[in-house]
Design a protein around this nucleic acid. Structure first.
Lengths: 342, 342
DNA sequence: CTGTTAGCGCATTCAG
DNA sequence: CTGAATGCGCTAACAG
């Protein structure tokens, strides 16, 4: 293998052609102020020399990196990946790349990631706060420096100057539970996630409100707030819950697809018939509910669209005059998708 | 909101302190050649002014970006995400970030991504080629420029100068099928992915070899090479296959977890009993097989470890003298994980 | 239409 | 121990 070659730069082309660097730069830019014949000469030479512009130099000079920084709490949650797919598709169409960082469900990591991005690597940031994130100073600090920010999914507090993309977790959950109640269910179990997380608080609230509206007594024994932050431990937590449950539930409302599937698994293995004896609802609708037997009724979240919308808002901010930015809060709709588990 | 503020730079600190930029730079670097007292003054001032180094300028100056570019064929395949998690964890420990790009199963996109990375945005590249990738000139070109490359998973052809991380698909598949044969299965269906893809070719070969070794006739009607590149269409393809199958299979060997799950779904819905009447094996073992009822026997791939290993090899290349790089080919072990579906 | 010059922000020689 | 000067590769303002 040959020794690492020095990169070809504008100067090399300029020298070969006996013209100035500026002209080469402009020619490659298709700047109309340069003669077509010169442009062609430059292109041909660049081609034959294997010229490749240096993105870093471009960025330093132009003040733009064309990179969007994305911070998600974890990789092993299909929801976040699907959002990223939405961001990526929209971003690519607008000539941006995405740099994904996981905060590993830790506020510290979230802050570190943000600081790394603040160093000028990205033009803007899309962030889903962790459950630990109670203070938003780190986000405000970024905004104050003029870096556009869009938040999505788990927003405990609206941040001045940032855009927000979310769903109405409260209402979505309320609708799901109400559906079960109207089916005549009384002992409706609730399986949520870590209660520090705003989305889970809201989904819990929806459950409580629906139960109250129909005067169904709330029973603590039917309620589980999972604390696992990793797929690995969710299973045991849910198995345990059902093993020790003192009342036979006739329905289970869960706050993620995985909780729903794990519930179904545990119930089926314990000999329950779904949906005859117990109904199950999941939250998210990221594809697996459809493959299960019985297929799982879900609150469908417009996950991919959330990502697209987030990217759209961010890129809008890029193009704004950097004057007072009016914070936008976009609420996307959910839908109850009926399948065999109810 | 205040107008976008100009970033603080070294020069600002230097002026305030009446010292040179160079000294500020060195102080922040903790260069021992600068007096401790000066260093402290600089740190304090930097802190109070909210100084944040400019990563782009640093990169241009140092020639290092500390970013690893990762190109995967698609987002909606948990396998790739899990590999990314492995890469990310290893990379982060070594002070690298990862920039993930999806090639959307298209050779064109793969090449475009590579070219984008070639522009100096990343220090090295980890890539899983698409099924369309038959030519490797684009990869060789990157390597020739001295950019370290590691390939993983779907490697049709070893590329001189790149490292490779893979599993023995052939053997893994052979073992799975052999296991079914030893259980007395005769009508073993095979469901693979798009046959242009090397991994699927190898897994198919493993199937054929096992069948031949035990003198079991191969029946075309029991073989399906899925052509879907999106989760969306896989379901219909598999349903269709089983609907029209002329022979009742007593086992199904599949080449991804999703194919396995979809097969189980279709079979269960058609009234088959698993595993009494038909056994099913999946490939990957990315978590869902365990949640299904019945739980799915799988060829377990060391997915996370593949990512870690790839990152390790890449970072090793960074630290090498850029002389002749000896291509390394790492084959990781798979394992047959027995569950209820067999 | 093209060239000259001055940055972009930082690291790093080389002097002193 | 510190400062001045140069360069990383490219863009853009200003001349001509």
């Amino acid at each position: 293998m040959p020794v690492k070659k020095r990169r070809i730069k504008l100067e090399d082309i300029a020298r070969k052609l006996n013209i100035s660097i500026a002209t080469v730069s402009r020619a490659l830019d298709k700047n109309p102020r340069v003669k077509i014949s010169t442009r062609e000469k430059v292109f041909k030479m660049a081609q034959s020399m294997g010229y490749m512009p240096n993105q870093i130099a471009k960025s330093l000079s132009s003040g733009k990196t064309n990179i969007i920084g994305v911070i998600i709490p974890r990789y092993d949650e299909p929801f976040f990946i699907e959002v990223c797919r939405g961001i990526d598709d929209y971003a690519r169409e607008h000539n941006y790349k995405i740099l994904i960082s996981s905060s590993r469900n830790s506020f510290e990591f979230e802050r570190d990631n943000l600081i790394a991005f603040e160093r000028g690597l990205v033009d803007g940031i899309i962030l889903s706060p962790t459950h630990e994130t109670e203070m938003f100073a780190h986000i405000r600090s970024v905004i104050k420096k003029g870096i556009p920010v869009v938040l999505f999914d788990n927003i405990r507090e609206e941040v001045q100057g940032a855009d927000h993309v979310l769903i109405d977790d409260d209402k979505a959950s309320f609708n799901g539970v109400e559906f079960l109640i109207k089916k005549g269910k009384k002992n409706i179990a609730f399986i949520g996630g870590i209660i520090e997380k705003k989305v889970f608080q809201d989904r819990y609230k929806g459950y409580l409100d629906a139960m109250k509206k129909y005067n169904i007594p709330i029973r603590e024994e039917l309620i589980l707030h999972c604390e696992s932050l990793d797929r690995e431990f969710e299973d045991a937590e849910i198995q345990n819950f059902f093993k020790n449950i003192p009342i036979k539930p006739d329905a289970v409302f869960t706050c993620t697809d995985n909780y729903g599937l794990l519930s179904m698994k545990t119930l089926l293995k314990s000999g329950y018939k779904i949906p005859e004896e117990v109904s199950v609802i999941g939250f998210g609708d990221l594809g697996l509910g459809e493959v299960y037997v019985p297929s799982m009724t879900c609150i469908a979240q417009p996950t991919y669209a959330m990502g697209q919308k987030a990217a759209e808002l961010l890129i809008e901010q890029f193009n704004e005059q950097n004057e007072t930015h009016l914070k936008k809060v976009i609420k996307l709709n959910t839908e109850l998708v009926l399948r065999d588990s109810t």
